[in-house]
Write a protein that binds this DNA or RNA. Sequence first.
DNA 1: CATATATCAGATAAATTTTTCTGATTTAAT
DNA 2: ATTAAATCAGAAAAATTTATCTGATATATG
Lengths: 143, 143
Amino acid sequence: MTVIFSKKCEIGLQAVLFLSTQNSNTLFNAHKIAEKVKQPKEFVSKVLQILTKSGIVGSKKGKNGGFFLAKSPAEVKLIEIVLAIDGKSVFENCVLGFPACSNDNPCPVHNQWGKLRDEAYLMLSKESLSDLKYKTLKKIVSL
Amino acid sequence: MTVIFSKKCEIGLQAVLFLSTQNSNTLFNAHKIAEKVKQPKEFVSKVLQILTKSGIVGSKKGKNGGFFLAKSPAEVKLIEIVLAIDGKSVFENCVLGFPACSNDNPCPVHNQWGKLRDEAYLMLSKESLSDLKYKTLKKIVSL
DNA sequence: CATATATCAGATAAATTTTTCTGATTTAAT
DNA sequence: ATTAAATCAGAAAAATTTATCTGATATATG
């Protein structure tokens, strides 16, 4: 099982993180990216299609084509990738699975989870891909 | 999609929370519990079997049988239910899905997520079912 | 213009998770 | 004893998610 994001989303995050460490003039095809993040090529390709539609990633068809970061790494936050792939339900639904969990009708851990959820959102919104670049490089190299 | 726990686990948490608001001398059969937490009877029954094996819930077979909290609500923490059903992988795996994420080989958000993960663990370990009783009652009534 | 190599779109397959079903066993009550 | 009502165990079905395949289209290059 994944932690809080879907597998799709994890792969999307990994792929974008990888792209952010590379010169955005250089294209990487799905095969190359899949190899870098050690994930199945077709799945990576599918996820990159989603991210292409949402404008985070750009693609070029045909020979010597591939994918690239469509925005400057300084402008992209991880939260964008999460929202584009998994949507916002992780940040809205009750952690215990109760329906209609809200301030007016809270579950037993509503406030505590609310705080953690907001901090998680912040964690993904605060730093840009360029802020994370050094750490990302170190991690990618180790894969 | 669920937030961080599986559906099994959500139902387990809800069922145990419900039981903790009731006199532990009284038995509730799967049908009744399912009705209370508004979830499919057979699924509730399956999850209660898991919790019975792990000793959190007790069961009595035969006519007038049913389930009950096997421990005092003052002794049970939500984390026990989570570990019994989903295991500890949520608290161990990399939130970005990278393999071998560790202090020696951290992902770009390793430390930040580590903090949140620990706080989530604490949130589930700190208060007992009896501490949560008032809040639980209020929520259950509203379902 | 022809060819090789990409993405892209959508269908299909496989795997996993969720849900339901069936039958066996247990037990209280008559 | 017999019966009714419950858990329990495991299989089966349905749904969802993950992964793969196929064919169409696009494009750089010779």
